[in-house]
Write a protein that binds this DNA or RNA. Sequence first.
DNA 1: TTGTAAGCGTTATCAT
DNA 2: ATGATAACGCTTACAA
Lengths: 390, 390
Amino acid sequence: MFLLLILKFLICGLTSETFRTILSVSETFRKTLPAIQRKLTSHPMTATLKDVARQSGYSVTTVSRALNGHDDVNEETRSRIRAAAEALDYSPNLNARQLQTRRAQSLGFIIPAEAQRLKEPFFMEFLSAVASEAAQHDYSILLSAHAPDAQEEDAYRHLAQSGRIGGMILMRARRHDPRVAMLTGLNIPCALFGRTGRDDGCAWIDVDGQAGVHAAAQHLLALGHSRIGHILGPDQYHFVGERQAGYASALAAARVPLEPDLIITVEHMTERDGYAATRRLLELGRPPSALIAVTDLVAMGAMRAVQDAGLRVGKDVAVVGFDGLSLTAYTSPPLTTVAQPTEEIGRKLVAMAVAQIAGDESFPKNELLIPRLIVRESSTGDQSKGQVLL
Amino acid sequence: MFLLLILKFLICGLTSETFRTILSVSETFRKTLPAIQRKLTSHPMTATLKDVARQSGYSVTTVSRALNGHDDVNEETRSRIRAAAEALDYSPNLNARQLQTRRAQSLGFIIPAEAQRLKEPFFMEFLSAVASEAAQHDYSILLSAHAPDAQEEDAYRHLAQSGRIGGMILMRARRHDPRVAMLTGLNIPCALFGRTGRDDGCAWIDVDGQAGVHAAAQHLLALGHSRIGHILGPDQYHFVGERQAGYASALAAARVPLEPDLIITVEHMTERDGYAATRRLLELGRPPSALIAVTDLVAMGAMRAVQDAGLRVGKDVAVVGFDGLSLTAYTSPPLTTVAQPTEEIGRKLVAMAVAQIAGDESFPKNELLIPRLIVRESSTGDQSKGQVLL
DNA sequence: TTGTAAGCGTTATCAT
DNA sequence: ATGATAACGCTTACAA
């Protein structure tokens, strides 16, 4: 319409009079257009501090302070402002707040791109604990999965630099974990599940895998097994070394020689790889009569391999897992496993991250938890109810 | 250290001379402190557009356009700017961007406060699909759990008005779902798992519970059962009515009379409530010989109740669940269940939400999926491998 | 093709 | 106790 107007004037010829008119029209238009656009495009019903200020008759500054509980505001003023905010259904725009304060009440969590991994029940149980503990602290979780093609480190960097998170929860610490270095460089506090092995000042919680596997091996030795297979994960993880140490120490204590043949490494800690590894172990000249697997999922693969070989799990070949997934109570037979307190770990990691963000130096920065061995039929072979040992 | 200084002066006694010294020290301290704090607390190494502009010699505007792929920028300029950005490890502050554009590449997802619910495997399997599909679209998920004491609707409103999300994924649609009304009022597109029952213009995906339960009941009738118990959930959910309709239609088709005694409602769809409901059913004068449960978890409680009553699941009492949790393959006996394509649902919901945010009207706004019945030992009682029927 | 300037909704600084 | 003003880092008219 405006263009038509111009066109019309152009056709009629321009006098300085009409030109001034155009300018004034254009001026009005320029002023009213944004308002119109705003009405049309923006979420119409989201009140801002300005709205509350107008409604209550105070300045934006005062409103901000009143709603944030500063003590330099008259109580009567505060209640008026509160009423206005309530009436308008005001709730703060966190983008603006986070931009201004450079703080964010969210923790980042990145899940591996590979969907299989994400479906690992362990991830989910962990995440559930993390999310609910975060809620207790009034934090939310920003869940991100890096695109399959992208660099892992970039994914972490983008999230960290996006300004939307105040800290980060990391899983599966690796020996020389590039993520940790990067995040501390960016001044993003992080809480790590697992140890990197060197003291990089990062907060962590870990489970004593050495003690756990030691207990598992001891349990199997006590049952009379002397050929115990050990299915390990990739060496890049610090815990793999720990686990192997626990295995070795238990055998040594029982004066059982350590046979390299019985120790095998899987590339991915999946059911599939557990199955394959177990097949190889069972095909040995003198196969093991018991197995310790790096993960419950790997152990489930192992159980299937044992059964497919015509052997009975628990009777012919004892199987022990590691993780303590709730799933393991329902397998047939139920799986003996070294249980990590998944929920406790998730909760404590969040608490650590939050404490660090708040600058609370007194909060413990790391903790080593002792796992507990849950004995079930997959190792004992009997039908009695499962019991919990240390 | 500063405190120590004060302490020292206090001990030594105060002259006006030393007092003035303190003041001046304090003054200097007060002035330099913020700068120091800033250096310490703010992320020192986070480059902004301004930094890239300075480094590359262009204006902030041009840099912005170059990096965002606008076509009104010289290609040579763009590559210079890209180089500068790379060199500085630039990555955008999304708070600022979202504040300005009023758009956010995140989807909100709120998990119920009750931790038990969150631990429901179904939630987790769903969430995993949602997160990974979101990643495909370059979206992230903002996970929030509303505090136990807070109002549910407030939790949704705060998240929606925080400006951090562009859309929302909702689970467990209820008949008159207040969340949907609120979100559409705020102009936040949402994608719903389940139907509200009335056409409120909200995108949804649902599973045909009527067809599912019909198939389950048919399966049990074919096995010779004529007294089939039905354990339902709270009536506030639309799907409960659907399920009951499927149950009724299957019985009617087989000319089996419908007995109200055999239909029972649990308040919470948990293992515990399933156990209790099943006990009550088994205590009837003429107990059912088969059960259809509203959830796999409820079915697992039912199986335990059957076993505790000294009966054999699958032989004496057939049990069928609904959800198709991967867990159900491992129960003893393995559970017959009406499987929802959890992953597909999660993925499609995300795709729907993203399409709506992008303003793509052509994208389908709702879809009804047909579940499939997975037959296992809990209904057949035999040891043959489980098979999938329609 | 590039730059200038305004503004998104907050909070922080500094007057009053 | 309250308010004016200036940021925070980004996008987007509009001007050049």
